[in-house]
């Protein structure tokens, strides 16, 4: 206190609560702390169960590429699955980011409330995006496998024929099904609703004053988006993309349906065969003996750790960008 005239000190206000309120608070607090406990237990139990795998391979678990968990000399490691997860996620984000940003902008800036007087475009789109988030991954996977894949191989063939000099587009096998690219596209489609709904929310927080100010200066809609909406929403967009990345890294079923497991590290996204941590767990579950299970749990632990870090950082960015804009 700098006020020299005041010598009074605040009294301590007693906040006695009734027994009922204490019980209620205890219950709610218990639930809140329960989330900590669950998160902690996930890490702890995966670690315990993964010990045999780590003991067998040591640090080579992070550098080995094969997955041989049975026999006298088991060698296995998470490296090729990890790179596979990352490649799929990068492709997925490359597909998802432009479409998601465009959709979020469309819903916020372009969509008329009603078309022809009765079609509620905006509400319909918002609902459709939410529905896409609820569609089971198994259905995305089936669609990718049975419908998208036959339509993609043509493009892949073309890319590898004409752009094959770029290493990423090279295909030494001549087989284009079950490739990283198809997995990536499907995973990207699955990430779209998350990124879209978050971006839409961030965009809608753009202060109306700034928007109208820019418009009254004669800025076109595109200008307003570039100069008002985007700068304002930057943090939130980055955060939402990271949340999408978390989802992409962890997608198991859709990838498991499409990919055919191959363990060498592979950067050729058009070529058949690949790997990802989540798909590896889904596909190899129940095979490979007890050491195999332990190895899969160890891989699960790695996935858990990576997504945990990404999500923590992402939620911080999102929260910060939403908070300090007010």
């Amino acid at each position: 206190m700098t006020n020299t005239t005041t010598t009074v000190t605040p009294i301590k206000i007693s906040s006695k609560r009734s027994a009922e309120d204490r019980a209620f608070r205890g219950l709610a607090r218990g639930a809140g702390l329960g989330t900590f406990v669950i998160l902690f237990l996930i890490g702890l139990f995966l670690l315990i169960e993964a010990i045999p795998a780590f003991r067998s391979q040591g640090l080579r678990f992070f550098t080995n590429t094969g997955w041989q968990t049975t026999g006298p000399h088991p060698t296995f490691g998470v490296l090729s699955a990890l790179t596979g997860s990352i490649i799929i996620s990068i492709i997925g984000l490359a597909v998802a980011i432009p479409v998601s940003l465009a959709t979020a902008l469309f819903i916020n800036e372009y969509a008329p409330a009603k078309v022809l007087g009765f079609v509620p475009v905006k509400n319909f789109l918002t609902a459709a995006v939410d529905l896409m988030a609820a569609v089971p991954s198994i259905i995305y996977g089936m669609w990718g496998f049975f419908v998208l894949q036959p339509h993609t191989t043509g493009l892949e063939q073309w890319l590898s024929t004409y752009l094959g000099f770029i290493p990423v587009f090279k295909s030494s096998t001549g087989l284009y099904t079950s490739s990283f690219l198809i997995c990536g596209i499907i995973v990207g489609i699955m990430c779209m609703p998350i990124i879209t709904s978050l971006c839409r929310e961030v965009f809608s927080l753009t202060p109306n004053g700034e928007r109208e100010g820019a418009m009254s200066l004669g800025a076109s809609r595109a200008r307003v988006i570039r100069d008002v909406v985007f700068p304002f929403a930057k943090g939130g967009v980055i955060g939402s993309i990271m949340l999408g990345l978390g989802r992409a890294l962890g997608e198991a079923i859709a990838v498991a349906i499409i990919i055919s497991l191959a363990f060498p590290i592979n950067f050729h996204i058009l070529q058949a065969g690949g790997n990802s941590i989540a798909a590896l767990i889904a596909l190899n579950w129940g095979s490979g003996g007890s050491l195999g299970t332990s190895a899969l749990l160890a891989a699960g632990l790695v996935l858990f750790a990576i997504t945990l870090i990404i999500n923590m950082v992402a939620s911080r960015i999102v929260n910060a960008s939403m908070a300090d804009r007010r």
Binding site: V8, T9, P10, I11, K12, I13, S14, S15, K16, R17, S18
Partner: peptide, 20 residues
Amino acid sequence: SLAGRVELDGDDIYDPNQRA
């Protein structure tokens, strides 16, 4: 936070034993 007393017919409502 605050300092001082508020008395309802002579009883301090901020008495530590008083429930809000």
